[in-house]
Design a protein around this nucleic acid. Sequence first.
DNA 1: CTGAAAGCGCTTACAG
DNA 2: CTGAAAGCGCTTACAG
Lengths: 342, 342
Amino acid sequence: MPRRPGPGPRRPTIADIAQRAGVSKGSVSYALNGNPGLSEPTRRRILAIAEEVGWQPNRAARALSASRSGACGLALARPARTLAYEPFFSKLLSGIEAELSSNQIALVLQIVEDVGAEAEALRRWWAERRVDGVLLVDLRVDDPRVAVVQELDLPTVVVGGPGATHGLPFFPGNDAGGVRQIVDHLVGLGHTRIDRVAGSTAFASTQVRTREFRQALARSGARGRTISTDYTSAAGAEATRRFLTRAPVPTAIVYDSDIMAVAGLSTAQEMGVAVPGELAVVSFDDSILCEVVRPSLTACARDVEAYGARAARALVAVIEGEQVAFGDEEPSSLVCRGSTVA
Amino acid sequence: MPRRPGPGPRRPTIADIAQRAGVSKGSVSYALNGNPGLSEPTRRRILAIAEEVGWQPNRAARALSASRSGACGLALARPARTLAYEPFFSKLLSGIEAELSSNQIALVLQIVEDVGAEAEALRRWWAERRVDGVLLVDLRVDDPRVAVVQELDLPTVVVGGPGATHGLPFFPGNDAGGVRQIVDHLVGLGHTRIDRVAGSTAFASTQVRTREFRQALARSGARGRTISTDYTSAAGAEATRRFLTRAPVPTAIVYDSDIMAVAGLSTAQEMGVAVPGELAVVSFDDSILCEVVRPSLTACARDVEAYGARAARALVAVIEGEQVAFGDEEPSSLVCRGSTVA
DNA sequence: CTGAAAGCGCTTACAG
DNA sequence: CTGAAAGCGCTTACAG
């Protein structure tokens, strides 16, 4: 069959290199992949020619013969934890991407409606051999994705956990540690009535935070309530109003996200409640949002990009069949701002 | 060579389908791709079997034989127009992704340091046959990517323009129209001294906005200055301070991004300048940031997801070799909030 | 209307 | 240490 000439410049193949080097295609492949069984001079000559002609592997060919796509997948559900507003995802994506691309691995991204569609995306990727492995974020308490990757034996790393991971390798966030830091800070300031506006109970991380919140309060002798929401600013405002209008009125409110914390801050101010004078406000996630409002918001800061990079590195290792150690929580530190200390 | 059994369930191939249907692999391929030259009953039978066994094309094999990767690429430069904070990108990504995946096309994302690295990513993708086409965002005035895609004859659609596109198909944003809407609104409120905190002059869109801003002011008899920045909140605050401390003091300031607008608002308030009483504030980009601050910010709203989807659809058409019509600016509408009207 | 075959660009046992 | 060859799973002219 005639080779479709195709527009644009021509891409060199290993056949071109083999011809110029006077060796077989096999030898070229061995040299390019660093396999043993080739004399040093031959290897050098082949590598030099490849460099000179600007050879890059045809990913499709390599994927077909080696059963490796050279790509990892990340499927994101949109509505909950709204992608558009939370800088967390952008940073996570950035960290993941940086690590993958430094390993010459592409990131395939799909944004879907819900966790069911995420599971479908995983199946299709597997069936199409689109990806060599996947990262799972925002694990639900009963997450259908876990069963799918286990059934398909698809290399996986969970960004989060340890809850609901069912034996999958995971990288816990700062859920437990973050809650402890926040409660300790508030208790240290003398607060004894601390309420919390939580995210959705469907998320494993919310459950971890809720459990830890109760324990941290109990340890320090403080008390508090928790209302779960859908992460929207409307829900954050509504929950704040409820807390502030029903006894026992809190002197501090903790929010599971920056969006809700900002909404809560505005609500309190509109109700004539002074922040931080009458009410301390803390956001679990730090972001530019926390910095730009007045007063600025105390929040738990962590290096989300590094977190994403670590998870991606682990996924690469899992794909390579290496043993990887997991288990340590992500470090985080409390950034104290005007919403808790005047 | 023995087929590597590999872990997990086995994926059906067209050979399996051919065997079960009692036809050749070629016929299966024809049926699956809707090619003519196959009897209707045969086609139906093949399709039914494919459906039953859950066949999905091996992307690598299809890519290798058809010279199509079934993927499109988007390379994003990080520092300028900081990815992490502007919801614009998340929404754009979401719109692009939705459109591509409805066409069974994967999105390959790479986040890099600068526009030079973006150009490199394009070259590598091309050399590796990773993508069939690319989307270019944030076009610079003298953008190296343009020459690269033209040299490689890589199907491309620019998200933005028309400036600096050099003949590439493009989808203009709402730069000119948005500026007109903002100026008209402010002039209608009686403002005659309107300053503007602009983004980087390196971006083609900034130049369009700056030109349009001058013309809109001139048309309406108003006057104003422009300071260019790097989009950071620090720069937004600094520019605001300069405007407010040097005569002629403006009664309105327009910001090229929501982050800078919020920073400007805080700065004005800290300086004791009442908003909107003494100073009107407008953000070019609308976002949740504009809603959560007090007073909330008047801004130019547009459907960014739809914008991304349109651009992606156009890219698919370009890849298919179709003729596509371009040229209309994205519609946008001004959302009036407390920062311009009490 | 259908089948047999070549080819896409790699990788990888297997001979020499 | 090196070469010839088969194979990955598709697509696509070309015969029949």
